[in-house]
């Protein structure tokens, strides 16, 4: 289970304070599929980055399975990102020098998984997202939708309980977007917690619960 307490993030733009997130209390249950929608600049990405331990809050806390992540060391946070969470970016963010298989295997490499296991599992994951025939392609040789599917496979690499997507369908066409949401829905059915940010009400409809954000707050 994930929950936030009084979670706030303030950015400094020169002398101006930007309150990207204002005292957010949010609870996400295990196995839930939640969509967060809201206008641009409302703080959706900021919230996801904090939940995903990619950033640290200005005040407040994020608890993952009862652990206060603010109390963890750098390495402790890296471990959470590696083992408990799979993050999917709008821009895919694959390593462009590595092929699909190696990209998917990379989180396992950092987790110290042996070479053979890594390749076997990456192979399976790519097949699962429908890219069994594109394993040795570089990101530059793949379409946006294919790259996002590699990114999903990479997010699943260390078998995390939570998958977080920050507008995972933002850079692909509607049809591909639906396919990607279909994959996420399937992951949810397998018992994983899915948190997705989107602009698109149709996409949000895949989720079991939808939360709206405005001006750094989560609305009821």
């Amino acid at each position: 289970m994930i929950h936030t307490e009084n979670l706030s993030k303030t950015y400094m733009m020169g002398d101006v304070e930007v309150q990207a997130l204002r005292a957010v209390d949010l609870e996400i249950k295990d196995g839930e599929f939640i969509a967060i929608i809201g206008p641009s600049g409302s703080g959706k990405s900021t919230l996801l980055n904090l939940i995903g331990c990619l950033d640290t809050p200005t005040s407040g806390a994020v608890f993952i399975d009862g652990i206060d992540t603010g109390k963890l060391s750098e390495n402790g946070l890296a471990e959470i990102r590696r083992e408990k969470i799979g993050f999917i970016f709008q821009q895919f963010n694959l390593i462009h020098t590595l092929n699909a298989l190696e990209n998917v295997a990379l989180p396992m490499f950092f987790a110290g998984v042996g070479r053979e296991t890594r390749i076997k599992r990456a192979d399976e994951l790519l097949a699962k997202v429908g890219l069994g025939d594109r394993m040795y392609h570089k990101p530059s040789e793949l379409s946006g939708g294919q790259q996002q599917r590699v990114a999903i496979a990479r997010a699943l690499s260390n078998d995390p309980e939570v998958v977080i997507g920050d507008e995972p369908t933002g850079n692909v066409d509607t049809e591909t977007g639906n396919a990607i949401m279909g994959i996420l829905k399937g992951l949810n059915r397998d018992g994983r917690t899915i948190i997705v940010v989107t602009h698109d009400a149709e996409i949000a409809a895949y989720a079991g619960r939808t939360k709206r954000m405005r001006d750094g707050r989560v609305l009821d």
Binding site: L54, A78, L106, F110, R154
Partner: peptide
């Protein structure tokens, strides 16, 4: 730097 960020986001430690 971007690549380093991505590696950290998917769970690499600074040391890695």
């Amino acid at each position: 730097t971007h690549e380093i960020g991505v590696m950290k986001a998917i769970g690499a430690k600074s040391r890695d």
